[in-house]
Design a protein around this nucleic acid. Sequence first.
RNA 1: GCGGUUGUGGCGGAAUAGGCAGACGCGCACGGUUGAGGGCCGUGUCCGAGAGGGUAAGGGUUCAAGUCCCUUCAACCGCACCA
Length: 822
Amino acid sequence: MDQHYNFSKIEKKWQNYWEENNTFKTTEDKNKEKYYLLEMFPYPSGKLHMGHVRNYSIGDVISRYMTMRGKNVLHPMGWDSFGLPAENAAIKNHVHPNIWTWKNIEEMRQQLKMLGLSYDWDREIATCHPDYYKWMQWIFIQFFNKGLAYKKKNPVNWCPSCQTVLANEQVVDGCCERCHTLVGKKELEQWYLKITEYADRLLKELDLLEGWPEKVKIMQRNWIGKSEGAEVDFKIAGSDKTLCVFTTRPDTLFGVTYMVLAPEHPYVKELVSEECSKDVEEFLDKLQYMSEIERTSTTLEKEGVFIGSYAINPLTGKEVPIYIANYVLMDYGTGAIMAVPAHDQRDFEFAKKYNLDIVPVVDPGDPEIDLYNLKEAFEADGTMINSGTFNGMNSRKAIKDITAYLEEKGLGKAAVNYRLRDWLISRQRYWGTPIPMLHCEKCGWVPEKIENLPVLLPTDVEFTGKGESPLTTSKSFKKALCPKCGGEATRETDTMDTFLDSSWYYLRYTDAQNKDEVWDKEKAKYWMPVDQYIGGVEHAILHLLYARFFNKFLYDLGYSPCIEPFTNLLTQGMVLKDGAKMSKSKGNVVSPEEIIKKYGADTARLFILFASPPEKELEWSDTGVEGSYRFLSRVYRLVHELSDTIKDATDSYVVETSQDRELNYVLNTTIKKVTDDLGNRFNFNTAISAIMVLVNELYRYKSESVLNKGLLRHAIKCLILILSPFTPHICEEMWQHIGHDSTLYHERWPEYDEAALVRDETEIAIQINGKVKERIMVTSGLSKDEFLEEALQNETVKALLDGKNVIKIIPVPDKLLNIVVK
RNA sequence: GCGGUUGUGGCGGAAUAGGCAGACGCGCACGGUUGAGGGCCGUGUCCGAGAGGGUAAGGGUUCAAGUCCCUUCAACCGCACCA
């Protein structure tokens, strides 16, 4: 052991040791309790950023801790390696995405290894590898065979810059999630996955996820957006058509005074009267020129036009006019609504503007509200009025009764609507998994035969960055034979959204190298579910919802053993510098490489874990990093200086002096605290601060004239062990130095001694009316009565009580004594 | 607009089930070691001379409130005409 803390030498040495000795290799072991720890795998941009370092440092601490607790830990790593940047690089620099991506993977793997992370690299996967995407295609075909993958022509979100379609989830504020370009609409035939089929389970089974942050569950609930209500059929006057609407308020059916269609509704063209056609066309024209955000903005004034037809209220038989308006959306419900201006604020505003009738049907029973001269819509519950036989009924009950009545008369039915849409998965891109489908004139869409998988990405393609998928430029790819009839067929040239690749990788890790099947079900059964998943909140909706969906589908097929894939979820906070997210444009990026070079990986890890609790934002601080480095040097020096003293000490020792007792007390409370913070709370910052307290105490103890070598040796051993999950390299080095010849990775986590946690005497506060006046020492661990008795004997307490009118004394053993006086 | 999170020294943060606010670290100041600097070691560091005051602001419950309840404000995040 060098005299000074030579981190670069130490870190290289132990990284090599771990690699050569396969220290982190994991296999199924039925005799041990498994623990599956997963951090979200990165996109291989080529450069690690601080967010990665934080994510993987958190994971590594948990992984190493769980291993020391005797768990069989699965801790894998891989690459989410399909995606746009590779293709953009190809267009810009004329490098093939494959070459670009694999070079990045190499570089990033090196950087990850430099952090000393305990991954089982034998399980490494890359989604762009044919061995992986073969099974992606296989899964897609399972979806297709179950009727859950289908192709449909629809107006879709189109990013003019990326030249590809986007899922609804990938449109943020009307802009492309990736490049922030304004997204438009385009009519295209695309592949969809029927995630809506699973909407109810995705919603309900969130309740099983007790180990997830409430915030994430709420976001998913809102995203799925379940509404219960009814579908009601309105006949159209002078036509044999019926107009179906969805409403959550069937109780207000008697208050319908007009109907509204979304401008894109197919009925518009058919129902528009001649007199109105000019107005309607002008209105549609106007909307054409509006962007998606403008059109759907809540602040936009509600506008519309009458189309010249009338619908018949199924309960009253009354005719009401049909409008089209900008506030009704084609892609929710049926794209048409019944308008009840008295009880819906949007309808109210529209009715006011166009002088439409406002008929109240729910009475709030509030004298302040003038029902026939409403200032705003009344949306709450009340008593039914103007509603025929339902009058006098509570509106809550009327929802049920009117729905039942509609069902009975065949005029409508109870219905549930979701905000969640089916998942559009086709992308007009090269660097993704080819959709393994062929189109045959005779047989329609046919999946590729399983034995022919993978459908490989062709290499003879051009990257123009424009229009259709680059796969169409391949000479060999498109033309193929129909797997069903053997006739001529055309291959699908679109590729899959990369979110599909990351929706099942956690299952593949359980049997990552399997060539014959997607994974061995027995292995998946041993490892799944993931016990702890760690990643950024930015994946709260997209990735986590898709992954849950895939897992449920695979569960239904018998391939996943669990209903939910991730038992516990930790969403780590962002890394900030000067109060803002690190970004090139702001010029506040601190590169991990630079920090590792200057201070070492252990310091980087320690700082990141110490500066903030994991779910919170972390403010980067250069001086803070130096502090962490200083601490590690201090620990290193301590062990170095004491190594001679403790070398030949025995493992048994007796705690004798009061100094011994103090050290023993601090040691054991520290072990308890760190155990608790790591095992139950993931509060790494307070765990580290506790270890710092122990180190301070050891420095103090070291300066004593008489040292208890056995105790000291034990304390140093424990210190190294409890610090090792945070900073493994330096701890391995010190562990070796105090006389061990193999890795501490498989050492058992130290136990604490309950008896040592109690000091003979405890300092307590004496309060008068809740204000601290004095502090005294009393015997520890007394009962309330004993404590009170002893405290009252105390001279200081007696003096404080003297001459006072004491009302009450509240004893809190080992904490305080509150004297209430008047 | 709806939903959520957060608010504590000069700074990052601690206080886990209502019981001594400010652990631990950074910064700063002073002292020691040193030719000097750095490094290291030690001491101090919420405000106030003091009584006392103090956890975004105001109110409440309690013997006791950063923690519980009500009102307000600010910052951040998510969704947003969802019928």
